[in-house]
Design a protein around this nucleic acid. Sequence first.
DNA 1: GCAAGGAGTGAACCATCATTCAGTTCTTTG
DNA 2: CAAAGAACTGAATGATGGTTCACTCCTTGC
Lengths: 203, 203
Amino acid sequence: MAYRKTPEVLRRQLAAREHLLTRATDLVAETGWAHTTVGAVAAAAEVSVGSVYQHFPSKSALAVEVFRRASGHEVDVLGETLRGAGEPAARLARGVALFARRALQRPGLAHALLAAPAEPAVGQERLEFRRRYHALFAEVVREGVDAGLLPPQDPWITAAALTGAVGEVLVDPVSTPAPGTVEALVAELTAMALRCAGARTDS
Amino acid sequence: MAYRKTPEVLRRQLAAREHLLTRATDLVAETGWAHTTVGAVAAAAEVSVGSVYQHFPSKSALAVEVFRRASGHEVDVLGETLRGAGEPAARLARGVALFARRALQRPGLAHALLAAPAEPAVGQERLEFRRRYHALFAEVVREGVDAGLLPPQDPWITAAALTGAVGEVLVDPVSTPAPGTVEALVAELTAMALRCAGARTDS
DNA sequence: GCAAGGAGTGAACCATCATTCAGTTCTTTG
DNA sequence: CAAAGAACTGAATGATGGTTCACTCCTTGC
């Protein structure tokens, strides 16, 4: 035997894979899924088209991994906040604000993850992650209802509304124009979320 | 001159056009935009591919018209209800219920219109119609706020949440399984909408 | 240095569709 | 019925973009 994979080679391979993923994510955030062709990703990562297939079995697989990474991170962050300390309503408010603020910081990526047209495999993945968002929101709402802090309601519907509301705001490119408007928007969204869940705003 | 268009011929042409549109709409509702190719539409309408181009300059034009017809009808119906008689909150409740009920009656079409991946031209149209839905909802909310019947709020955000919430419920294929569940779902959605706008539910 | 074998390359290949157009069929009118 | 002029047809065309593969370039271990 004259050749064996060395740790150094493996490290380099992994790095190349990471590089492809980050460049592909950037591309998706900037241009959307439609413009993210294999050729474009390869060019952005400064490798050949063929090399992409050394790391991913197909374009779909690459796209799905891009989606999973970005979305997974959001779910984790949101989950941490929603499951944190404090009363359910307070956690809900913090979660919505965090979710919205993060999305508004990276509008392109948020749009790609939540709404932009994508190939079927990514669409499937999107459904799966939407379910996770719903589950997280629904859990907090359920807690609030069970503790008598929120009025009786179907937590799943409320959760869907919250996800949908934030998503809607992002889908419309008319929004997020002035940087100074962000906090006002977040405040309005949070207030809406609390009303939506039936929390007393006693403003 | 040996040939001139006869009213009969014009009628037949118009009928063929209508036929194409209805079959295309059915196809989109059943299989989504991706599977709705020119060839598939032609086959469904039992005409040749070339004939499609006698009625529409391009596939995009056909798709856009399919979308406009279906969505336009929904906007009209919703607008009528939201601008009808009664207090803002009552109209809002009726509008949401109507919107949801109609969507749940034709889940495939609703999904195609609100969420399914589509070509850019249709996506653009979708944005436009989403804005119309928002405007309709926002108008009612604004009326309620101005009349002091609803708490101060950004009507646009509330409208976005309402659209998003109904959309979310439809995007998830897990929903709308049992036919008997529809009314319960509509009731929950309506209650959520009223909370969302800050209307007193005084249940 | 060198043989073995993987990694990297990109032009060629292939599949999918939208679109066109030369030929055919149908309608109208004299 | 015949000529004119549309409407209809579907195979050919063209564009796009994912996938492959014969080839070159590196690394490794002797």
